[in-house]
Design a protein around this nucleic acid. Structure first.
Lengths: 211, 211, 211, 211
DNA sequence: CATGAATGAGAGTTCATTCAT
DNA sequence: CATGAATGAACTCTCATTCAT
């Protein structure tokens, strides 16, 4: 007896709704997206959505957890594993992970939506902060500590480093996705990640050549 | 002899309205702000606002021109003047200018509001792009060229540099203003600017000491 | 067991709203009528009206279909059935139907409202034209053809006849309903219809008496 | 010393304004027309218009007086002069005058605008009634009396005749101007007037031929 | 006479959320 | 669980009219 698509996984409903929400938010933006569109895309009625999420804002928060939060936790893992041994490689991996994520519209959607809605809703801001930013900040702090301890990194300010590492990722997303200003000469995200890493690691000023 | 409210300084009206708009947008966000609140703050009736601006969106665009546009043009000037002689100092000045601006809620308001509304309105996005981003991008391009020509800078990718220089400024604004995550150890924006410059110029990896 | 206001007769809602719209439009005119008044009269909230009609204009168009459109189709039927056999009687019946309709404020409301709004909205004009005028014109054309073919009518111009038959009905409505100039000596609409038919059929000039 | 156009005839201002109003009302309709547009077209400021007319509605009423009222008085004259001698010719002239007027957008503008606004404003309705309709009705009554007295016309009901004579003129205007349904086969207004007169005078039913 | 800045009431439409069924 | 009809608050923009100058 074949199950219909609709009844297949009743326990998967929340995820189905979030998938739909991601798609609709991504296409139209949070404010422009109508809950009914999300419901339809998920094969549900408008009212049913409210059985799973108490509000539209809550959907965004759930999306943040599922998407950006997962990414942040992965970044944390990456640092935890890689930083003690080879902080420079860990940093490269980290930046590449973030930049690649920001280049993928589906993954960058949550941060982008939060950027748009956080000013309106302190709850959304606080949630993103706790689910993403605090984790990322902690990871960067550890990476920095490890690098400094092993002599790979200079002892710079942690918050400055967070801005220098995270900022380009945000900027890349904002410029590419919102302002349609993708990089002209570097088309591959991985290549761009490497260019950014080189800059972050070695700076703009040329190093003295060993005589 | 007190002047009546009417016709007091008719030629100053647009600026008065923009001042009020800046304040109200800053407090409540663009979408949440009601035109009537702006009008009241400017000492006008709702309808009078529309004598000077055709729409709410137009107010934001005007704000962009007045605030971020002016900043972008100043940055361009700074680069035009300083880059040929001393690109490193020019870059330091530039970053300090941007970072300080982003630390001031009144100046960072326009970019912040645009970040929120650009996704909804292609016109706002295009306006900001042409009034701010294109100018900034051009200035950074010139700064880079000058620095490379004089041997002060490595020949890095221009768009990567734009992300590395602009990103931390955006990140600083977003983290400080929206997510209430100001730097912990560096409280002075100028100091933070210097820290960022050091990182951007010299990188995270320690330089070989001259023996 | 009293039903709650909600969901009482969901399938009758559109008609209930149209009834209310007819009443409110009739009392206040289209432009002056507020959607909320219509909603209240229909026992609904303002927003609920938009579940059934996409706009205020659409309500007027629906009213046209329901009221004047039905009348036009009835006129077409009448002609189709009666004209082949006895065109003169068919014409009398037709005029009487139209004149009586125009004498009833509820039935003449739609044409009257369209007369007011068609200048503003090409859509409303086109809708009325296709739903009412084209049908009436076609019917009159057929009536004329049948009458001419059977020798009952002179072969006059079709559009002139439409003006001579339809014009008095419009004039009657306009004079009676808008300008409060009802006929002085003939109080019964049917009687007025007969007087008009006599004029249309036999003309103002007396016929030669058979010797 | 050449006078500027603006200052040439200060006493002609009201007429200049009415000319502008006629043009703007005709192009956009009464409700859609903005007083400022009328003022601009008349070479005046918005406020100045109110030195000559107390309200927008008053402009329409003045237009009625100047345009339709003049026509009605001309019709009255025509009847007063022609009806006693040759009522049939007088009626033909009258219909031709009315039909031709209704075919000219500039002349039919006032009745058309009144048709649109009378439902909203009893004052406009009353004004049109007294300035146009009552006069026309009186003239038709006299024409009918004269024709009946001289044996040229059958003794029909006066209000019915008014509907039969005026109706086609209104219908012609409405169909042609508002619903874009001009006559297909008769393109010349004078010809259409003749066709209408033939119908009104001799009826649709063929006359017995004198043996 | 003339200006034009200012007023302020006004209404259609949208949509997140609720709840009777 | 699910539906979908219903709610009701919110807000921009328009424009006839006024009046200080």
């Amino acid at each position: 007896m074949p199950q219909t698509a609709r009844k297949r996984r009743p326990e998967a409903r929340p995820d189905e709704i979030l998938d739909a929400a991601l798609a609709v938010f991504g296409e139209q933006g949070f404010a422009q997206a109508r809950v009914e569109d999300i419901a339809k895309r998920a094969g549900l009625s408008k009212g049913a959505v409210y059985l799973y999420f108490p509000s539209k804002d809550a959907m965004l928060n759930a999306l943040v957890e599922q998407s950006a939060g997962k990414l942040a936790r992965a970044a944390e893992q990456l640092v935890a594993i890689g930083a003690p041994g080879d902080p420079e490689t860990a940093l490269r991996s980290l930046i590449r992970m973030l930049l690649t994520a920001m280049s993928d519209p589906d993954i960058s959607a949550a941060p982008r939506l939060v950027l748009t809605e956080a000013g309106r809703s302190p709850e959304i801001a606080a949630h993103y902060r706790s689910q993403v930013l605090d984790i990322a900040r902690r990871a960067m702090g550890r990476l920095l500590e490890a690098g400094v301890a092993s002599g790979h990194f200079r002892p710079v300010d942690r918050d400055a480093l967070m801005r220098v590492m995270g900022g380009p990722c945000i900027a890349h997303m904002v410029l590419t996705t919102i302002f349609d200003l993708p990089p002209k000469d570097i088309t591959d995200p991985a290549e761009m990640a490497d260019a950014l890493c080189d800059l972050i690691l070695f700076g703009l000023v040329p190093r003295e050549e060993a005589a």
